[in-house]
Amino acid sequence: MTTRARSFDAAAASYAAHRPGYPPALLDAVEELAGRPLAGARVADVGAGTGIATALLHERGAEVLAVEPGDGMAAQLRRAHPGIPVVRGDGDRLPLATGAFDLLTYAQAWHWTDPARSVPEVRRVLRPGGALCIWWNDADLTVPWIAGQEARLAEFFGAAEGSGFRTLPRGLGGFTTRSVSWSRRIPLDAHLANLASHSAFLMLGEAGTREYVAAERERLAPLFPDGTVEERYVAGLHVTRV
C-alpha cells in the first residue's frame, strides 16, 4: 500500500492540474455536521496531496495545516499554496500535538491509513468535541457513459481493485453521512489525464497507461463531438465527533 500511495509523487503536477475539486455545498455540510464554522477552526488536512481540499478549507477561513508524506506532492502543495504550512507525516503517525485541533479532514485519503494506528491518532490529536471528517469523490454511476467507463476499469484491473476502499473506521462512534452531487465540464484530454493520474495507472506504467487511454479516447470521442466532457460526481462526506 505504501508503494502505491507514494506513486503519486511522480505525477504531482498532473494530479494538481487535472483532479477534481469539491463543491461549496460539501464544505457547507462539513460545517453543519461538525457543528461549527470553518472560519477560525484549527484544521489538519491529512493526506493533503497537492492541497486541493486544503486550499478550499483555507479559503473558508480555517487555520489549516497540511499533513503530507510524499516528497513530490508536498513540494507541489508548497509551490501552489506558499501561505499554507505543510508538515511531513501520515495518518498513522501524525506529527501533531495532542488535543490541538478542532477538525481532522481526510479528502480522498482515509483509505491509505491503517485504522489500528490512525484511529488512536485521531483520538489523540482532536480536542474534546472535535470532529473527524472523511470524504471521497465517487463517479456518478447513474450516468451511462460513466458507468460504462467504470465497468471497463473494473474489468481491466480486476474486481479486487476497489475492495475495502470506502471502509469507515470503527471505534469512533457513529458517522453522519451526507452526499453531494456535482459536476464539472472539462476537455476530453483533461478527463483522460485525470483518469491516468489514479494510482492504478501510475502502478501500471507509462506504456500500459498510454495504450489504455488511447482506447478510451476512441470510445469517448464520438460521445463528445465538441471535445468537452461533463464529469459527474457524488461526494460522500462522513463525520463523527469524538
Rank of each mutant, 00 (worst) to 15 (best):
E211I: 08
A139K: 11
R88V: 15
R210F: 02
S118H: 05
Y22N: 00
L56I: 04
R124P: 13
V125C: 12
L26Y: 03
T176Q: 15
R79S: 14
G47T: 03
G51Q: 00
V30I: 15
T228V: 15
G91A: 06
R42V: 14
T240Y: 07
F165C: 03
P23L: 11
L202K: 03
I186A: 10
T142H: 13
V30T: 09
G35A: 03
G72A: 01
R88L: 09
A139R: 15
P82N: 06
R124Y: 07
L237C: 08
M73E: 06
G21W: 09
A62P: 06
F175K: 01
V229F: 04
H111F: 11
D92C: 13
R19L: 05
I146S: 09
W145A: 09
V86H: 11
R127H: 03
G173D: 02
I146C: 10
R219D: 04
E59G: 05
R219N: 12
D189P: 05
A221H: 08
G164Q: 09
H238W: 10
C133W: 06
R19P: 13
M1R: 14
V239S: 12
G174P: 05
A75P: 12
V229Y: 14
L126W: 11
P23W: 08
A116N: 06
A107F: 06
A154H: 11
R210Y: 03
G40N: 03
R241P: 02
A62L: 08
P169I: 12
G83T: 10
R19T: 02
D90V: 02
W145M: 04
F175L: 12
A48C: 01
L204C: 03
A44N: 03
R4V: 14
A75L: 03
V213P: 08
D28W: 00
A16Y: 00
P128N: 07
Q149F: 10
W135H: 13
S183H: 11
R42Q: 14
L237G: 04
A12L: 07
R60S: 07
A97D: 15
G171E: 03
I52Y: 04
A75M: 01
P69L: 10
A154Q: 11
A159K: 12
D28V: 14
R152A: 15
R241L: 08
D102T: 01
G89W: 02
P128D: 04
G205E: 13
A17P: 10
Q108F: 00
L56V: 07
P128Q: 13
A131V: 06
E32Q: 12
A80T: 02
Q76N: 05
L132E: 04
R6G: 02
E63G: 00
I186Q: 15
L153G: 06
